[in-house]
């Protein structure tokens, strides 16, 4: 019990450390700063954009990895989980080497279309999706694996098309995991720092999301950095508390 309490302190104390240093009287002034609002708005746009990308591409990938048997499936699973353990900065460098202006995808893309992802909002979304998608795939993959496939078989015997089965049977069955995976993916995208600053750079209003703004603010204005951190904490904590029933079975 004491060990458990020590572990709890490890999480609670830093939180208290932040809260007591928040300049409450000036909170309004800090939050109304256009740079803060820009970063907050950009964070929401990018994290939601990344979540949409993850849903559109991640659900099919999770389905593929669980339901379709093909050579190298285990390896592909490992690779798509890699961003969870990889230092995000390394992920950002890897993205640069592929999608950067000198990258083997980025260079032909730039020469043909003049489009270059680094230093753009699209680049920020890509970096966030790269880091966040595994959380969605893991959650949905687990649910797909453990669901009762006889439901899908039954639907098929009633001559439902593959798409109808997926849309009307599979997705509703894994709904709780789908919601949890989506929120987890979004939260990870919202907090993304390393891959974003490495791949997309840091420019206010274009690629400077809240975590990047916190990092830059630390250079000059600790109070501003703490205030920004509180905004992120409030958002994240709100989402996690909202999800607690799913993880801990609290009624």
């Amino acid at each position: 019990m004491i060990l458990g309490a020590v572990a709890a302190l490890l999480f609670v104390l830093p939180l208290i450390g932040l809260v007591i240093r928040v300049p409450w009287p000036d909170l309004g002034t800090y939050l109304a700063d256009p740079r803060v609002l820009d970063a907050l708005w950009l964070s929401l746009v990018c994290s939601l954009g990344a979540t949409v990308v993850c849903l559109v591409f991640g659900i099919p990938l999770a389905w593929l990895q669980v339901r379709v048997s093909f050579p190298g499936r285990g390896l592909l699973r490992a690779i798509t989980t890699l961003p969870v353990v990889l230092p995000p900065v390394v992920g950002g460098v890897a993205l640069l080497l592929v999608f950067g202006r000198k990258g083997f995808v980025g260079e032909p893309l730039y020469n043909l279309t003049g489009i270059s992802l680094p230093f753009t909002t699209a680049g920020t979304i890509l970096a966030e999706a790269f880091v966040a998608m595994p959380f969605l795939i893991l959650t949905i993959g687990g649910a797909l694996q453990s669901m009762d496939t006889r439901l899908e078989d039954a639907a098929r015997t009633l001559s439902a098309s593959r798409w109808t089965v997926f849309w009307r049977v599979t997705l509703p069955t894994i709904r709780p995991s789908l919601i949890a995976g989506t929120v987890l993916c979004w939260a990870r995208a919202l907090g993304e720092f390393g891959a974003t600053i490495t791949f997309a750079g840091n420019f206010p209003g274009r690629t400077q999301t809240l975590p990047l703004a916190v990092y830059v603010a630390l250079e000059t204005d600790t109070a501003a950095a703490i205030t920004l951190s509180m905004v992120m904490l409030a958002i994240s904590l709100g989402v996690l508390i909202g999800l607690r029933r799913h993880w801990f079975g609290v009624q």
Partner: peptide, 17 residues
Amino acid sequence: TGLMALVVVSAVGASGC
């Protein structure tokens, strides 16, 4: 897995210092 993910999210969230 969910818990692990939660831990990783919070750990990775504020790197760089």
